[in-house]
């Protein structure tokens, strides 16, 4: 971009793309801290689950401070319950704001899902039907969160297991409309697209073709488990406990070939492997980014 274009462009109230580099990032796990600090790996960014860093002090916050000195951070919330029926938890917004003020993450993301209801926290990302009523509520919550946090939020597409009878909107249209109304960006979880597509019987390539990719500030990849439902059908579980599957790599490569490089996280949250295994997943992402999704056509 030349200087004149930058001067002439209207300054958006919220930057169009979050500040993560278009490189590979990984979930940060405290078990990897010593290896990471010793090795100084060529990782584009680290992502943390915000709720694990909401203590008053101690090693988690010390490690986070050390990471933040050397790498861009992505702050990923799992407990704001943006899709919930009730109002957002103001105390939780304040905790998130404190992390944002303290560690200046390059991006903050949350989910199109709910996790709290009537004061109980359910510790899962639960689905909501896509209707006019839920659209209005989610937009209100995204507005409130962005105001309270003082920054643009990236909203992530969920994993679907159950299907709702009532659905007025396709998920891609629903996400696009939320972004249009609130100015938020999107986090495109390609593993969730694959898991949902198998579980609900839709074409993941059609989903990705319909996804408003221009709003994507970050991509997620993760490994999933394969189980069987009561009718003998395949039921994929978004487990984050193993390497990214070939089918997800293929979708990702096709996406990057079409859209260009995007900040891309490999998530790994259970059965945490030794650091070199997670680093190798990041290297695989870097390869796709460097080759422009190179092998997408072959896949």
């Amino acid at each position: 971009m030349n200087a004149h274009a930058a001067l002439d462009a209207p300054a958006p109230a919220l930057a169009p793309r979050a500040g993560l580099p278009a490189r590979a990032g990984v979930s940060f796990k405290p078990a990897h801290f010593a290896a990471i600090m010793g090795e100084d790996p060529a990782i584009g960014f680290f992502e943390i689950h915000a709720e694990n860093y909401m203590g008053a002090g101690g090693p988690p916050l010390r490690m986070l401070a050390a990471l933040a000195e050397r790498w861009p951070l992505s702050l990923h919330g799992v407990g704001l319950s943006i899709g919930g029926e009730g109002p957002l938890d103001r105390a939780h917004l304040a905790r998130l704001r404190a992390l944002i003020d303290g560690f200046a993450p390059a991006a903050f993301s949350e989910h199109l899902a709910w996790s709290s209801h009537d004061g109980v926290y359910y510790n899962d990302l639960l689905p909501l039907p896509y209707t006019g009523a839920t659209l209005a509520r989610v937009c209100e919550h995204v507005d409130q969160a962005q105001d309270a946090l003082g920054r643009r939020l990236l909203l992530e597409n969920p994993t679907a297991y159950v299907a709702f009878e009532q659905a007025d909107w396709a998920e891609t249209d629903f996400l696009a409309e939320i972004a249009r109304r609130t100015g938020c960006g999107l986090l495109l979880d390609v593993a969730n697209v694959h898991v949902s597509a198998v579980n609900q019987g839709f074409d993941p390539m059609a989903y990705l073709a319909a996804f408003p990719v221009g709003l994507v500030g970050e991509v997620h990849l993760a490994g999933h488990a394969v189980e069987t439902d009561e009718n003998g059908g395949r039921l994929l579980i978004d487990a984050h406990d193993r390497p990214v599957a070939a089918a997800v790599w293929a979708l990702y490569a096709a996406l990057i070939a079409r859209v260009g490089p995007l900040p891309t996280l490999v998530e790994w949250d259970a059965d945490i492997p030794d650091w070199p295994i997670l680093r190798a997943e990041a290297e695989a992402v870097e390869h796709v980014l460097a080759t422009g999704g190179g092998h997408a056509c072959a896949l």
């Binding site: 009537d118 899962d124 297991y161 439902d229």
Partner: peptide, 29 residues
């Protein structure tokens, strides 16, 4: 929400095995 932590309540969806994924996520977590 009520059925997530209460095994005595029936799954609120037709596909019980799929709802069980959420039940399991909540409790196992």
């Amino acid at each position: 929400a009520g059925a997530l932590l209460d095994p005595a309540r029936p799954a609120p969806t037709r596909d019980a095995r799929r709802f069980a994924v959420h039940r399991n996520n909540v409790l196992a977590g």
